[in-house]
Amino acid sequence: MHEPWIFIAFLIPLGIILPATAIGLNRLLAPRKPNPIKQSTYECGMETVGDTWVQLKGQYYIFGLIFLIFDIEAVFLFPWAVAYQQLQLYMVLEGIFFILLLAGGLLYAWRRGALEWV
């Protein structure tokens, strides 16, 4: 049962190790001569003004929340979709009812203007 996961267990570390090797190679090959001007943060050639911390808009958080809710919805729906072939029509309709409720939520967000990027 674990067998298919062995491949993934190797591939994912390799996906990190191979680029890490390239960066390590860069350590060996590339010059390293840091100086204050080179190291300074880029801001269109001028000196950096103020702090890096900028006030983000609350919009990001709303998008994150809506994404989270749809993500959880999908997690509920995937087993339903896998079993779909063996379900009766009324069972399929229950799943659709689930989707419609969430669609109502999306509609509410839309009407309230939460989806506008202002």
Binding site: F76, F78, P79, W80, A81, V82, A83, Y84, Q86, L87, M91, V92, E94, G95
Partner: peptide, 10 residues
């Protein structure tokens, strides 16, 4: 997973 899906709408 199939059983889970069936149980959810049963």
């Amino acid at each position: 997973i199939q059983e889970l899906g069936k149980a959810l709408v049963n």
